[in-house]
Design a protein around this nucleic acid. Structure first.
Lengths: 156, 156
DNA sequence: TTTACTGCAAATATTTTGCAATATC
DNA sequence: GATATTGCAAAATATTTGCAGTAAA
C-alpha cells in the first residue's frame, strides 16, 4: 500500500478514536497496519498471523475486538463467502470492485467497472443514506463452463 | 407460499436429484418444505425448528447436508449478515430484492426495484456466465440518522 | 488516579466428521 | 443386494465472555 493512503487511513482511525473517546493503544495501530498489508480479503486468523510476522504480538481476542472497532469506524467491511469464517476487507479497496463468485468451484474474481460503480452510486433510496455497496455476481466461470461442456460431449 | 411456486420448486429439486443420481429421501423433501415456509432469511437452527414444528424429525447433520445440496441445485442462496451463523434464502425470493443494511443498528430492509434488477441483469462480464445477483447497500437508516442528529443537538 | 483495554482461559456457538444402522434404488 | 443417506456422538473450528493485570488519559 502506498504511504499516502496508509497515512490517510491511520489519520481517520485516530480521528474516530478521539471522537468516540476510545484509547489509542499500540495494539490497535499494530492491527491497523496488519489490515493494510492485505490487498484483498482476509479473516481473523490470517490477520493474526500477519501481525505476528511483523514481530508484534496481540491476542486473538484483541484482534476480534479491534475489528469491531474498525468496522464501526468504516475502515473495514465484512463479506460473505463460502468460507466458514467471516472475511474482511479494507473498505478503500472493497469500494473499487464487484465480485464474481463461481458457484461450481467457489472461486472469486474481482472486477473493476466504472459503469457499475457509477450506477450504484446513483441509486437513491427513501429513508436510507447509502454509504457503501457490495455487489456479488453468482454464476459459472469459463473454466467450469468448459469442463461441463466437455463432460456433456463425453456422455453423448 | 402459493402452491404453484412450491410445485415448481419441488419439481426442479426432483429433476436435480435425478440428474445427479442422488436419492429422493423423505428427509430431503421435508427440509425443502421447511425452506419454503420462510419468506425471508433463515439459518440452520431456525430451519431445524421449523421442520420440528411440522412434526417431522430430521437431524441437524442432515439439515446441513441437504442445504449443501439445495445450494448446489440453485434452489437456495446464502448471505452474509452480521449474524454469526450463515443465513440462507430461497433463490426465487432473493432474486426479487436488494438489501439495505444499516451499519449503525444492523437492521436489514429489503427493497424491490425493477430499475436495479434490470441494470444487474444487463451486466455483461467476459469469461463469466452470470446467474444471480446479490446487492447489499450499506449505510444509515432514517431511525439511526435521526437519533444521531438529536444527539448532536444535545451536545451543542 | 481512573477505568478502558489487553490477554488468557474457559464457555459457547457453529460446523464437520466418523461410523453403525437404515432406506433408496 | 449395493451403497447413499441418516442420525448420533465426538471432534474441529469459530467466536464470545469473565476477569485480573496493565497502561492510556
Amino acid at each position: 500500500m502506498d504511504s499516502k493512503l496508509y497515512n490517510e487511513i491511520q489519520e481517520s482511525f485516530t480521528n474516530y478514536l478521539t471522537e468516540k473517546k476510545l484509547r489509542k493503544t499500540e495494539e490497535r495501530y499494530a492491527i491497523l497496519e496488519g489490515v493494510c498489508a492485505f490487498t484483498g480479503h482476509f479473516d481473523i486468523v490470517m490477520l493474526h498471523n500477519k501481525i505476528k510476522e511483523a514481530r508484534y504480538y496481540v491476542s486473538k481476542s484483541t484482534v476480534y475486538n479491534t475489528l469491531e472497532v474498525l468496522l464501526d469506524a468504516g475502515i473495514v467491511v465484512s463479506h460473505q463467502t463460502s468460507s466458514q469464517s467471516v472475511q474482511y476487507e479494507l473498505k478503500k479497496y472493497a469500494e473499487m470492485h464487484s465480485h464474481l463468485f463461481c458457484t461450481k468451484c467457489g472461486s472469486i474474481r474481482e472486477i473493476k467497472n466504472a459503469h457499475i460503480k457509477g450506477f450504484l452510486n446513483a441509486i437513491k433510496v427513501p429513508r436510507f443514506t447509502p454509504d457503501f455497496y457490495s455487489l456479488y455476481i453468482y454464476g459459472t466461470c469459463s473454466k467450469c463452463k468448459n469442463k461441463i461442456q466437455r463432460e456433456k460431449k463425453q456422455i453423448k
